[in-house]
Simulated assay, not measured.
Amino acid sequence: MDHFARSWTALRTAVGELCDQDGERPSGCAGRLVRDPVCHLVIDAQDVLITLVTPVDAEPTVDCVTYWNLVEPPTGEDPLDALIPRLAAAHGQPGLLRFHFDDDVGAAADRAAELADRGTRVGTRDDVLTAGDHLSAYVMEGTLHHLDLIAHLPAAAEPPAETLAAARASLERIAGARIPASSSDADALRVGTGRRAPTDAEQAALGELAAGILFLLG
């Protein structure tokens, strides 16, 4: 199953169904409005496009797990963190952001992924990995941002069950530990990436993991 295609299609649909007022609502990222992760996704789509057309004649240095930089604890010093809200606000018309992701670069990234040879080695962030591993990493990224978009939109559809499960499995591989089965995939992703604090029951189930599994992905 092509988890990237499933997650990306669902994500484009979720963005396309946002109304102008939704962009001003809080997202699942603390201190961020819904328009901010949409803007982040435009940059993600550009990254997918650029990476897939950047073949490298070298051995892979990372895979879909070691691709991620873990920050423990998060410092908040990533320049992109400060840029995104300003860039999102600068668009002015909410529909422009939706267009850029759903119909423009997001659609182009979807098509590029469909055409890509998964075994091709590509370069990004001074690393080398296969195109397949790069797209697998974006299953995690896309699923997390999908959850961010709909955190306060109860009528919005969740990511597909298959991609939620795949993202959870990736998170557990990154963390090197299993999250208790009592947590749903969505809850495991939100708690495991620090998007919300664990409840008392989740804290008890996580045990020692509660202090060690939290990190930001980027």
Results as ranks from 00 to 15, higher is better:
L171K: 01
D110A: 15
H91I: 07
H40P: 07
I213K: 00
T120S: 10
G192A: 05
H152M: 14
D81L: 15
L214S: 11
D185M: 04
A108P: 02
R121T: 12
H100M: 15
A88C: 13
A201E: 11
R32M: 15
P159L: 04
H91A: 13
A58H: 07
A165P: 01
A167G: 01
D57K: 03
R190V: 12
R196D: 08
P79W: 12
E77H: 13
W8A: 00
L41W: 05
D57H: 01
S136Y: 09
R35D: 07
A197I: 09
L18A: 02
R32A: 15
A30H: 15
A188L: 11
P94N: 10
G92I: 11
R12C: 06
L171M: 06
V53C: 08
V71T: 14
L97Y: 01
T120W: 06
A45E: 04
L52E: 00
H3N: 12
R32N: 15
A155G: 06
H40Y: 08
P160N: 05
V191W: 02
E208Q: 09
A181W: 07
H134E: 00
D148T: 11
L144V: 15
F4I: 04
L149Y: 05
D133Q: 00
D44H: 13
G95T: 13
V191E: 00
A137K: 03
R6D: 12
A165W: 02
A167P: 00
D148Q: 12
D22Q: 00
A157Q: 15
P60K: 03
L11P: 03
S27L: 07
A88N: 05
E72V: 14
T51L: 03
V105G: 03
D185Q: 05
A201N: 06
T130C: 04
C19D: 15
V34P: 01
P85V: 15
T13P: 01
I43L: 14
L11K: 02
A107R: 14
A89K: 12
L18G: 03
C64G: 12
S27V: 03
L129W: 01
T124V: 14
A175S: 14
D78G: 10
V65S: 00
V65K: 02
D102I: 02
